[in-house]
Computed example of a mutant assay.
Amino acid sequence: MGNLKVYYGWSRIGNVRKKRALSVMFENDAQGCRSERGQRCLRTMQDTVFERYQTKDEEQDGKQQNRIFTEYSLFFDEKPINGSLERCLLVNSEADKNHISKTMRESISEALRNAFMLNNPGYKEPRSQLELNFE
């Protein structure tokens, strides 16, 4: 594992962001990201619920960037998610399958699910005819 981190969380809705999204932030530079200014920037963008260290491959991609963070978002109310928490977590887990273990992906999904349900207590999974199965 490398020295750079990956932060998983839910995006903060405000003046800049108008849509709910699962937000994955990749550090590109440990000094800038872990400074007080970098952490304040991260807190304004998302509510972080899980952190892990990047793999060597992920770290190599990050070192080529000129920003301190790179964000990957899954918009909750748009296609292919269509408001389904389980589908959102499944797509995120599928994106990470080449980099981290299945147990780590399950713990990330569980932390994201718990944080979402805490902030959205009346949430019910939408009924859909389309089923995604990546296994």
Rank of each mutant, 00 (worst) to 15 (best):
N66R: 14
S35K: 07
N120T: 03
G9Y: 00
Q46F: 04
N3C: 10
Q31F: 15
P80W: 04
E51K: 05
G2A: 09
K124H: 12
T48W: 06
L85A: 01
F26P: 01
T44S: 15
A115C: 04
V91H: 06
I81W: 00
P121D: 02
K124D: 11
T48L: 07
S107Y: 04
L118N: 15
M104S: 11
E58W: 01
G32R: 14
S101D: 11
S35I: 03
L118Q: 15
N114H: 13
A95G: 09
A95M: 08
I13F: 07
K18S: 09
R20Y: 07
D57H: 13
S101E: 08
E27R: 01
S84H: 01
R67M: 10
M45T: 09
F75H: 06
K97M: 08
L90K: 01
L90I: 01
F116G: 05
V24T: 12
K102M: 10
V24S: 04
T48M: 12
F134K: 02
K102A: 10
D47W: 09
E27A: 03
G38R: 03
N15K: 15
M25G: 09
N119G: 12
S101P: 04
R17F: 13
E36Y: 10
N133P: 03
S128N: 09
W10V: 01
L89M: 02
S23C: 13
K124A: 13
R52M: 04
M104C: 15
S93N: 08
D47N: 15
T44E: 14
D77W: 08
A95V: 11
N28V: 04
F116D: 02
K63M: 15
K19Y: 13
G83N: 01
G2Y: 06
R105V: 00
R87M: 06
I68G: 00
Q129G: 15
T70H: 02
R43I: 07
M104R: 09
E36N: 11
N92V: 08
T103M: 15
E71Y: 10
P80S: 03
D96S: 13
S23W: 12
S11C: 11
R40L: 14
M104L: 13
E58S: 02
E135K: 01
R17Q: 12
N120S: 06
I68M: 06
F69H: 02
R52F: 00
I13N: 08
F69R: 00
V6G: 02
T44F: 11
Q65K: 14
H99C: 11
G62H: 00
Q60I: 12
F26I: 05
A30R: 06
V6H: 01
H99T: 10
K5G: 05
K79V: 12
C41W: 10
G14L: 07
F26D: 02
R127W: 12
L4S: 06
S107M: 08
L118D: 15
E94M: 08
G32Y: 12
R127Q: 15
V49W: 04
K63R: 14
T70Y: 03
E106G: 08
R67I: 10
G122Q: 15
R105S: 00
P80Q: 04
L132Y: 10
V24D: 05
I81A: 00
L85F: 04
Y53Q: 12
L22H: 05
S73R: 14
A21E: 00
E36Q: 11
E125L: 04
N82A: 02
N82M: 05
Q65W: 11
L112Q: 02
R37W: 11
E135C: 01
S11R: 09
S93A: 08
